[in-house]
Nucleic acid binder design. Structure first.
Length: 203
DNA sequence: AACGCATCCAACCGCGGCTCT
DNA sequence: TAGAGCCGCGGTTGGATGCGT
């Protein structure tokens, strides 16, 4: 079936996005809207594949994106939803306004898995979760307010002139973790969603 | 102060599903 | 109905940063 060979095309940039590329992509989408990812890079003047553009937009440039600072309430919600949906990160993300599937997936793999395991909760393989008929997603409309793009310590902006090696240096800022939970998210006993081996009332 | 290890996250890759012709 | 193409998703990887020795 239709595999998109776009990312394997030679001549396309890969690796970290520069400020200029972000600006091009944002400007283009603001003017023309999302979609047509395959033709978007060409129309926007980007030497990227459509997939890369889409990923960048969805995970970073899209208005309303929240970065880092996943609070306990959000974490509980993720755990709860994961218990219901399994590794349906996009569905989980759809119920967490401002969060992306990639971020949730990363957070799950780095933080929550450890926490669950240390609590004596054995995670089954993702496929082990039953897949219930998917409830209609909350359909968070993309907020219009522009989220400040993550500031890089040393933005790789000077690569405008395509001199770049395939994998350039990624400068990323330290994520700022705040403990203030999202105000509107109810506290859940999400850990109970998991079939516990010992005690499901971990915290 | 330097080195090595562990952690974390941005981005890539490949596949499946949906839509159009 | 079948084939082709695109989009979206989930898993994995690469590499920077932080921390401990």
């Amino acid at each position: 079936m239709g595999r998109s060979p776009c990312c394997s095309k030679v001549g396309l940039r890969r690796g970290p996005w520069s400020e200029k590329e972000d600006a091009l992509l944002t400007d283009y989408i603001n003017r023309n809207g999302e979609g047509q990812w395959r033709s978007l890079p060409k129309n926007a003047g980007l030497l990227r594949c459509g997939k890369s553009c889409r990923l960048r937009w969805m995970n970073y440039l899209r208005p309303g994106i929240k970065r880092g600072n996943i609070g306990e309430d959000e974490e509980d919600l993720i755990v709860h939803l994961h218990g219901l949906l399994g590794n349906r990160w996009s569905l989980i993300a759809g119920r967490l306004p401002g969060r992306t599937d990639n971020e949730i997936k990363n957070y799950w793999n780095t933080h929550i898995v450890k926490k669950l395991q240390s609590s004596g909760i054995h995670l089954r393989p993702h496929s082990g979760f039953p897949r219930p008929p998917l409830p209609p997603p909350a359909k968070e409309p993309p907020q219009v307010k522009r989220s400040k793009k993550r500031q890089r310590k040393s933005p790789p902006e000077k690569e405008d002139d395509e001199q770049g090696p395939p994998r350039t240096v990624v400068h990323r800022p330290k994520p700022i973790r705040i403990s203030a939970p999202a105000p509107s998210l109810p506290r859940l006993n999400s850990w109970d969603s998991y079939p516990s081996v010992g005690s499901s009332d971990a915290d």
